[in-house]
Design a protein around this nucleic acid. Sequence first.
DNA 1: CTGAAAGCGCTTACAG
DNA 2: CTGAAAGCGCTTACAG
Lengths: 341, 341
Amino acid sequence: MAKKKRITLRDVARHAGVSPTAVSFAYNAPHQLSQITRERILETAAELGYQPHPVARTLATGRTHTIGLVVPTGLNWLLHDPFFSIVLGEVGAVCDEFKMRITLVPAPGEVSPTALATIAADGFLVFALHRDHPLGAAVERTSRPVVMINGDEKLAVPMFNLDDIGGAYRAAKYLIHKGHRHIAVATLGPRADGVVIPSMERRLEGYRQAVADAGLPPETLQIVYTPGLLSTGHESFQKIWSLRPRPTAVLCVSDVRALGILGGARKEHIHVPDDLAVVGFDGLPEAAVSIPPLTTVQHDVASRVQRALSMLFGLINDQIGEADLTYRHITPVEMVVRESA
Amino acid sequence: MAKKKRITLRDVARHAGVSPTAVSFAYNAPHQLSQITRERILETAAELGYQPHPVARTLATGRTHTIGLVVPTGLNWLLHDPFFSIVLGEVGAVCDEFKMRITLVPAPGEVSPTALATIAADGFLVFALHRDHPLGAAVERTSRPVVMINGDEKLAVPMFNLDDIGGAYRAAKYLIHKGHRHIAVATLGPRADGVVIPSMERRLEGYRQAVADAGLPPETLQIVYTPGLLSTGHESFQKIWSLRPRPTAVLCVSDVRALGILGGARKEHIHVPDDLAVVGFDGLPEAAVSIPPLTTVQHDVASRVQRALSMLFGLINDQIGEADLTYRHITPVEMVVRESA
DNA sequence: CTGAAAGCGCTTACAG
DNA sequence: CTGAAAGCGCTTACAG
């Protein structure tokens, strides 16, 4: 089968008896054309079924109308992190509004440092990148605008984070005040691809500081690696429950972990919070309706995403001249006490 | 600030003292070059910090290495449909493997029928599109490869669906067998943007058939519109509970709805399944660990996505000559009886 | 093994 | 208001 040849602007020009320039103007600068020629051109284009070629247009204008959303791991991460779905949804909502498209850029630990260069995008929204990640240096160096969310503050990129340390500190302090002296910490284990998520590191740091400031020994905290999944909650719970000394409370670096553990405890008829107090992190909607409702550290994802994209779009559209690479916006967190602790 | 001029292939050629062709070959046809010149070129490129321009490359080759993932609504839908997160995650996993990128294509009810033409992609994976959607005709007509998931079988596009009708039929029949004669159906209401999701229509049809086949009157089913959200589950429950005659069971077109309603019932101390039996649809992982565990209709999303993408990539790479527009793959469903009904 | 040339399909000063 | 020309930065027959 011979491939149908694409109808180009040139074809339209020929059929309408005008120059290619005129056809281009019909779309991009209508006021430069007399109404009559413009109409003729548009009619001819419709008859021929002409559609401007987006790639050619991009090459000529330099604009893709697309942002690259860089995630610090493979795209299958989406399967494993409901929290990221929320981030993506918020990004989507803002991009809908500004008529920008999103292209997903996976960045697993083994990604080439030049990966960004191959992406057709006007700028990048980078999510949760650690300075040691192969793309860490790349995002600092790309000639296109970049902003970062939940990232490593050591990177020289405008950054929109939340108060991970403060939130974790408060969560731990809350448990200590309630008298807990053996506290498990459920966090993500070292990943096969070596990727480290900066906010998880910071939350751990916050927990530790609280313990230190309370004059308690570091062993008060017992680290447990658990997957951030609801479905493996039972397993996670058993890991925690078999620690010695047995913890009376667990600090989770994410609500997903906490929710899973809640389910696991229930299956074993362990009462939360009496037998085991559980504290989450993030403030997912699910945390409000779990059984029991989850005590957690809440932060506003939507506004963080909005701020970040507002800066990114400003940079892309040259409304902001130069990115302030030291800019740091820290969303405050709120400790929400419910029934699980 | 003067913008730094981009370093082009031409610059590299000049600096290395070779032709542009040679530089291109260094990347795309290394064996066409003597090792020594290739090395010289690559070195020069590295020194100058040369990166091939992806858009120019696309214009010349016709390949974007990207698929457009078309969703039948705005991107903020992601916020409201956890099930879609799973689909997206599976798509991501497969694309990771095949080194294809994903660009998200929102298609709310008011989208222009020419929207696809502006997307730089080698093909489209279309999700849940109805024939009356403004893009319905567009996906049939685009010159680029298209496959569809959970779509409208009236559309002339290769399609990978699941047995919505059969699954719904079995769910309803199960409840009828258990003696339920007043059954609520929780489904999504008419959307502001007019978008209709085909699988939801089919599930409704399945419920109705089961009722008819059992010789029961259509009024056995009472339709209730509820948002597919956990957080509004209490409200949804109250809507159902205030129906008269009061239903003894509820069929939900999605697990998310069912899970929300479970939470709402619990808050009101209504026992599931004794006071109200609840059946979901989809088989989310969460359904296995809810309280009580959810009886639902399960189907395999991962394999459906894999099959669909395998055809799409085959079409894109010309391994499959011509798309069979009447192709219909129907994933079987499995009724999973747990404790909620 | 290497190069000159045409082409991918647009946009946009510039000139009239 | 309209057109001829150069340019965006690559790739790829074709010729040698």
